[in-house]
Each structure stands twice: as structure tokens, then as C-alpha cells.
Design a protein around this nucleic acid. Structure first.
Lengths: 141, 141
DNA sequence: ATAAACCTGACTAAAATAGTCAAGTATATA
DNA sequence: TATATACTTGACTATTTTAGTCAGGTTTAT
């Protein structure tokens, strides 16, 4: 099990955005340079973030992106969700495979995966962008 | 982020083994039939479990596998570890990329991934095979 | 003897990942 | 108004990972 770059990049980019988000929009080019992420790839990621209304775009020269909500209100779960990085464990019900068809022969570990999903998602739901930026500032002192 | 079949199968197979582990070894063929997992794939998985001393093999007719420790002592973390399914998030130190070389320009989210790893691993470290089998029995009543 | 079951390594099709590339459109500013 | 900056979109692709299969073994209870 691993976290993919897309999810990591999305969080890194937004943390960067949250940190430098004053009045002016932040360009992807700046984020690309600061975080070492390909500009083209960032564009794909921000396209998704915009569709889910996590960021707003400002076109033209001096344009860029701004957060669409307060950093406090943007939870990690929203970010991962936007870039299709939800935690998935099993889909037992898909086909009535041996040992798990949702009925009496429920698979031995069915509930385990549910628990695991909840456990991980709880983490993502508690953490906000603000938490990230704060803790990075604290470390700076 | 998703859990792979290899990890799931390992846990499912061991839960099955723990449940039917009396005196006689349990053959992979039985597990394969009960859990709907390819026999050949199970063999690959059990080869790893054996190398990490989670199970013991009994060769020959009437052979199979038995747990090498008590179900209570086998934690999920041991299982995932054995089949190379450890949770990995980032390896910032690998190359001194922009924004994270382990020094002052530590990447904004570095600590987040550490926290996440710990959070997930805690879950795996707390759960034992016995917990799985128990809860599946309780549900049966 | 022989069949059941473990054991090993090589191979592969399909999917996912991590991008690149190309061709735009919008707009602030000189 | 020319132009450079920056967003926008969609198609394409190389690489890696996953989830197995396949083909050959070896061991041992009966």
C-alpha cells in the first residue's frame, strides 16, 4: 500500500498555496519551482482541484490560483477526494465470489477493511491545510 | 491510495488458517477453494510468510501449513511486512529535490506523511489474527 | 508406486502511474 | 494594441506495478 505522487503533490501544492496566499494569486510556475513538481502535471492536478471548488483560478498575466475557502476549512479528505485518491480497500459485493457475497458466508476479513478505511479517513478528516502550515511555521522558530 | 490484493489475500488466507488450525496442517488447496484465491498465487504468498516465520510448512500428502505462533501474537503489521506491503508515503531523503533535503528547507508536508504512516501502522500493530477470528465468530451467533 | 502437497523461478497481460506534448484561451500591462 | 504570462484541455506514452499463470520440480504419507 502506498500513497501516490498525485495525492502527495496535491497536498504539497496546496500547502504551498496556503502559505503564500496573501492577496495575490499564486502561479503554478512558482509552485512548480518551489516544490519541484512538473508544471504540466500541476496543471492536471489544479484542474481537478478547481472543479471541486477547492481553489479559484485567475487568468491572464499576474494570474494564478487562490484558495476558495479558508485553510481551516479545507480538510485533507477534500483534497484526496478531488484528485481521486480516496482510500479503497475491497469491494466484496462486486461479484459474488467465494467467501463473500454479503450474506451468511461473509468473508472473514470484510469488517477489517471497513475499519481500516474508517481509521485512515478519520485522519484525513481531522487534518486541515491550516494545521499543515501552522506546524511548518512552528518548526521554523 | 489502495490496498493491494496481495496484502488482502495474505490476511484472508491467514485468517482462514487460524480458524481451521487445530492439529492438522491446512492445505493451500483448501484455502484456495474456501477463499477463492488462485492456488499458484497463494503459493507465492505463503513462501514469503514462511520465510518470515509466520507459518510453518508440512510437506507431503496430508501436508499443509500451520501457524508458527499463536494467533494472538501475529499482528497484521507482521503480515503486511512479510508480503512487502508496508505503508510507504514519501522518501524525501532519496534525492535532494527542491524543498526537501532534510535540512532547513524541509518540505512543508514532510511531517504529515510521517504522522500518516504512524497512524496507519498503529492500526496494524494493534490488530492480531486472533481479533479477526474472534470477531468473525461473534458475528456468527 | 503414486498422488497429494509443498517449492521455485520465470514469464506475461493488463492496469495504473507519472508524467509529456500540443494547441489552445484569457487578460494585465507596457 | 501587441505581447508575455498564465490558465485550460485533451491526447498521448513510457515505465512500473499488479496479479496473476505456467512449468517444472521435491517431499512424504499411504
Amino acid at each position: 500500500m502506498k500513497l501516490t505522487s498525485k495525492g502527495r503533490y496535491a497536498v504539497m501544492a496546496l500547502a504551498d498555496l496556503a502559505k503564500f496566499d496573501n492577496i495575490n494569486p499564486v502561479s503554478l510556475r512558482d509552485i512548480s519551482l518551489r516544490q519541484g513538481i512538473s508544471l504540466d502535471y500541476l496543471e492536471q492536478i489544479f484542474s481537478k482541484l478547481r472543479k471541486k471548488e477547492i481553489v479559484q483560478s485567475v487568468r491572464g498575466t499576474q494570474g494564478g490560483y487562490v484558495l476558495n475557502k479558508k485553510a481551516k476549512e479545507i480538510k485533507l479528505t477534500n483534497i484526496f477526494d478531488a484528485v481521486d485518491e480516496k482510500v479503497k480497500t475491497v469491494q466484496c459485493k462486486k461479484e459474488s465470489k467465494k467467501g463473500c457475497n454479503g450474506k451468511s458466508t461473509k468473508c472473514l476479513t470484510h469488517n477489517l477493511w471497513d475499519e481500516l478505511e474508517n481509521h485512515i479517513n478519520n485522519f484525513f478528516e481531522e487534518k486541515s491545510l491550516e494545521d499543515l502550515v501552522k506546524s511548518s511555521n512552528e518548526r521554523r522558530i
